[in-house]
Amino acid sequence: MERDIRGAAAVGQLTEVTAWEAELILNLRLWQDGPNGQTLVWNSYATAFGQKDGRAELLRFERLIAMIDTHMVRPMVRHGVACRCIGSDEAVFANMVRFASDGDLHEASLIATLLVWPAFAEHLALLSAEVGTGTRELVRGHNPARDGLTNSQITRH
């Protein structure tokens, strides 16, 4: 039986994108991995922004993921947390957030239609702009919450 793996094709490596885009993809993977991963994401935000501001930034990220999950065209496919590859759905997600946080909301809205139904694309682009700005700030300094994820733990898939 054939599996539908649209969105899983490896289109790049985490080492080929900016640090904040790699962080964004890693946060997406961790978040979708469950409570333990979500705790790591929270720790990143709390470490970088403090409790209060970290909670506000995390809420934006949560709303973005929840909106995608609620209005997705098809299930989003991701690679494993420790995988070096970037899957095509993850690349779409990162590009949408990058364009939005660069101020190109029209392009981000068009990209969003690859993930969610068109009626929700503009709102998703607006949320993406906020998340992108926050993620860029998140990686400006050292993030000790990621120290445990070493290259020796990275697998292909």
Rank of each mutant, 00 (worst) to 15 (best):
residue 157 H to Q: 04
residue 111 I to M: 13
residue 84 R to T: 09
residue 43 N to G: 00
residue 9 A to S: 08
residue 12 G to C: 08
residue 148 G to E: 06
residue 20 W to E: 06
residue 145 A to L: 02
residue 136 R to D: 00
residue 20 W to G: 01
residue 150 T to K: 15
residue 57 E to L: 02
residue 74 R to K: 13
residue 52 K to G: 05
residue 70 T to F: 11
residue 91 A to L: 11
residue 57 E to T: 01
residue 77 V to Y: 07
residue 28 L to V: 06
residue 7 G to C: 08
residue 112 A to W: 03
residue 88 S to P: 02
residue 128 S to Y: 06
residue 88 S to C: 07
residue 83 C to Y: 05
residue 38 Q to H: 10
residue 105 L to E: 11
residue 78 R to H: 11
residue 74 R to L: 07
residue 16 E to I: 06
residue 106 H to E: 15
residue 99 F to M: 10
residue 25 I to K: 08
residue 24 L to V: 03
residue 71 H to Y: 15
residue 28 L to W: 10
residue 119 A to T: 11
residue 149 L to K: 01
residue 32 Q to W: 13
residue 89 D to M: 07
residue 14 L to H: 10
residue 153 Q to P: 00
residue 27 N to W: 11
residue 54 G to K: 13
residue 125 A to S: 11
residue 48 A to S: 15
residue 2 E to C: 00
residue 28 L to N: 08
residue 124 L to Y: 07
residue 94 A to W: 02
residue 93 F to H: 06
residue 100 A to S: 05
residue 38 Q to I: 04
residue 44 S to V: 01
residue 37 G to L: 04
residue 8 A to V: 04
residue 129 A to H: 03
residue 10 A to G: 12
residue 11 V to S: 03
residue 45 Y to T: 00
residue 111 I to A: 09
residue 141 G to V: 01
residue 34 G to M: 09
residue 123 H to W: 04
residue 132 G to S: 01
residue 95 N to P: 00
residue 86 I to L: 12
residue 23 E to V: 00
residue 26 L to T: 13
residue 27 N to Y: 10
residue 56 A to L: 14
residue 128 S to V: 02
residue 15 T to M: 06
residue 143 N to H: 08
residue 54 G to E: 11
residue 39 T to A: 15
